[in-house]
Amino acid sequence: MEFSTAIIAQVVLLAVTLSITLLRCFVRLRIEARALTLSDYLVWVGYAFTVAFVVCQGVALNAARTHPLVDDTYTDSVVYLKAVYASCFFFDIGLFMPKASITAFYWWLIPRMFRSLRFMLCVVTVYLVLAAVGSVCLDLFICFPVHYNWSLDYEKQGQSIWNSWNDFWINWMLNFSADVFLFFIPFFIIKSLKLRQRQKFGLIGVFSLGLITMAISFARFMIYTVSNYDLGDNDGAVMCTAEMCTSLIVASLPGLKVLITLVGYTAQQPYREDLGSPVTSITTNFS
Rank of each mutant, 00 (worst) to 15 (best):
R30L: 13
S77W: 05
K82Y: 05
L13H: 00
D76C: 07
R28L: 08
L38Y: 09
R65D: 10
A52N: 03
V70F: 15
T37L: 14
L14V: 02
K82T: 06
A83R: 04
A33P: 00
G58P: 02
V45Q: 05
N62Q: 14
R24H: 09
L23H: 02
R28P: 06
Y85T: 05
T73C: 09
V16L: 11
V16D: 01
V55M: 07
V84S: 10
T50A: 10
A64E: 14
A63K: 04
T17I: 00
T73G: 00
L14N: 02
I31E: 07
V54R: 05
A63I: 02
V79R: 14
A35M: 10
A35Y: 11
S19A: 12
V70D: 15
Y47C: 13
A9L: 01
F49W: 10
R65S: 14
C56V: 02
V45T: 12
T37S: 15
L69A: 14
S77F: 08
Y80W: 11
V51F: 08
E32P: 03
Y80A: 08
D71I: 09
R65A: 14
F53W: 06
L69C: 07
A63G: 04
L29R: 15
T37C: 13
T17N: 00
T37P: 04
V27S: 09
I8A: 08
S4Q: 05
G58I: 03
L42N: 07
V84A: 12
V70T: 15
F49T: 01
F26W: 13
R30A: 13
R24V: 05
L38Q: 11
V79M: 14
R34A: 13
T17L: 02
V43I: 14
V51P: 05
T66V: 13
G58R: 01
K82Q: 13
I8T: 06
T73F: 15
Y47D: 09
A6F: 02
F53G: 04
F3P: 03
L42F: 10
A60I: 03
S39Y: 09
Y85K: 07
A15W: 01
A60H: 06
L23K: 00
Y74R: 11
L14S: 04
L42S: 09
R28V: 08
V27A: 12
G46L: 05
N62T: 12
R24G: 08
L22C: 14
Y47V: 11
L36S: 07
D72P: 03
A15R: 01
G46Q: 04
Y47N: 12
T5F: 09
L69K: 12
P68D: 11
T66W: 09
I7G: 03
R34W: 05
S39T: 12
S39N: 14
A35V: 08
A33K: 15
Y74A: 11
L13W: 02
Q57L: 06
W44Q: 12
C25V: 13
V84R: 12
G58A: 02
L22W: 07
H67T: 14
V11N: 05
L81C: 06
A60T: 02
L69E: 13
A15I: 02
H67A: 15
A64G: 08
E32Y: 10
V78L: 08
L29G: 04
S77T: 07
V59H: 04
A33S: 14
F53Q: 06
T50F: 03
A48L: 14
V16Y: 00
D71Q: 15
T5I: 07
F26Y: 15
I7F: 04
F3T: 01
A48Y: 07
A64K: 11
A6Q: 03
A6P: 01
